[in-house]
Simulated scan of single mutants.
Amino acid sequence: MSRFTNKVAIITGSSNGIGRATAIILAKDGAKVTITGRNAERLEETKQELLGAGISADNINSVAVDVTTSAGQDQLINSTIQKFGKLDILVNNAGTGVADPSGTTGISQNISIYDKTFELNVRSVIELTQKAKPHLIESKGEIVNVSSIGSGPQSHPDLPFYSMSKAAIDQFTRNIAIELAKKDVRVNSVNPGLVQTGIMQAMGAPTQISDKLYEYLGSNRDCIPIGRHGYPEDIANIIAFLADREASFYIVGQTIKADGGSTLVMAMNTHNLTDLLK
């Protein structure tokens, strides 16, 4: 038997990037998956990749909804229970940075950017978790939240609302982990570093520009010590580990950084201090 045989998972934001990679890994390891996103065309691409990987259509529930709406959340939960009969794993992956149309960054951004960021990155996670809670208690399930190294403690002055929202998710993870552990439901999160997904295009950056940024940062070990940027599969494998009760049972309420070592680097360490002392 595969490790997720007879398990049912909802993966939000699975129309591309980390969510798509997670859906494929879980499904290939036996899970029945609900995939979801706002873009029906990209969501269909995920479904076709699943089918191409040998996953039966009977094990795929594709739901094109806006997870920030109550109706979308209800459809996501209800269709999963209706098709598969239960819910074992909730992966709260949907999230993004929101660019100010004026090009403004930092604290001068319009407060509407804060509202939009927190609506998707925080409020939708809380609401969907509330609605999934009774089903996860019944199955003794798992929740994996996808946060970011943007949550701190390092400063991210250009995107304060994004980093604030991810800090909120980290604390939400810790808080509900204690409550739900008493119900035999485990909650953890993963904090990706620089991972090549569609987030920059979603924020308005042309593909050529975002590719240039990934290449530049990934090739500079003073930014990413391991020597390359991340790929969605790098994070999806960690999500699968955290969703696997047998493999990660004793991990509760933790945030696992997956950033190639980025958060270990201080600016002073990028300079050769030995030469200065000669």
Results as ranks from 00 to 15, higher is better:
81 I>K: 00
222 D>Q: 15
45 E>Y: 02
214 Y>A: 13
244 D>G: 05
83 K>R: 14
91 V>M: 02
232 P>N: 12
35 I>E: 02
128 L>W: 07
29 D>Y: 03
35 I>F: 01
100 D>S: 08
132 A>I: 05
82 Q>Y: 01
242 L>K: 09
187 V>S: 13
2 S>K: 13
3 R>Y: 11
34 T>P: 00
54 G>H: 09
177 A>C: 13
242 L>E: 09
123 R>N: 09
251 I>M: 14
79 S>R: 09
277 L>E: 14
239 I>W: 05
240 A>E: 07
72 G>A: 07
101 P>R: 06
134 P>K: 06
120 L>M: 14
90 L>G: 02
40 A>L: 01
48 Q>W: 01
87 L>F: 00
12 T>K: 02
203 M>V: 13
79 S>Q: 14
233 E>G: 05
137 I>N: 11
144 V>N: 06
199 I>P: 07
107 I>N: 05
98 V>R: 02
133 K>W: 09
1 M>N: 10
188 N>I: 10
60 I>M: 10
97 G>S: 03
74 D>M: 05
17 G>R: 00
240 A>D: 06
26 L>E: 01
195 V>I: 15
10 I>C: 09
71 A>Y: 05
119 E>I: 07
34 T>G: 00
43 L>T: 04
150 G>Y: 06
207 T>L: 14
220 N>V: 10
227 G>D: 12
172 F>W: 15
276 L>Y: 15
48 Q>A: 04
83 K>V: 01
70 S>Y: 06
191 N>T: 06
164 M>A: 15
68 T>M: 07
88 D>H: 08
110 N>R: 10
130 Q>M: 11
180 L>R: 03
274 T>V: 13
249 F>I: 04
266 M>P: 00
93 N>E: 04
14 S>Y: 01
44 E>K: 13
49 E>N: 10
16 N>G: 04
63 V>S: 01
38 R>W: 03
255 T>M: 07
51 L>Y: 03
65 V>C: 06
200 M>P: 00
165 S>N: 09
111 I>H: 10
69 T>D: 10
73 Q>P: 04
249 F>W: 08
74 D>F: 06
56 S>I: 11
136 L>N: 07
138 E>Q: 15
116 K>I: 08
88 D>S: 00
261 G>K: 06
11 I>P: 02
161 F>T: 08
105 T>M: 07
12 T>Y: 01
66 D>C: 08
72 G>V: 05
230 G>M: 15
170 D>H: 10
43 L>Y: 01
21 A>D: 04
49 E>I: 07
107 I>Q: 08
163 S>G: 14
189 S>Y: 04
75 Q>H: 01
61 N>I: 04
155 S>H: 07
199 I>F: 14
161 F>I: 03
59 N>H: 14
45 E>Q: 11
160 P>I: 06
99 A>Y: 00
129 T>G: 13
229 H>V: 15
273 L>H: 12
160 P>W: 07
170 D>C: 10
131 K>S: 09
159 L>Y: 02
95 G>H: 02
147 S>W: 03
120 L>N: 12
247 A>I: 04
201 Q>P: 05
90 L>H: 00
49 E>C: 07
209 I>Y: 12
114 Y>K: 08
165 S>A: 15
134 P>I: 09
130 Q>N: 12
273 L>N: 10
170 D>V: 10
56 S>G: 14
137 I>A: 11
152 G>H: 02
258 A>C: 13
163 S>Y: 11
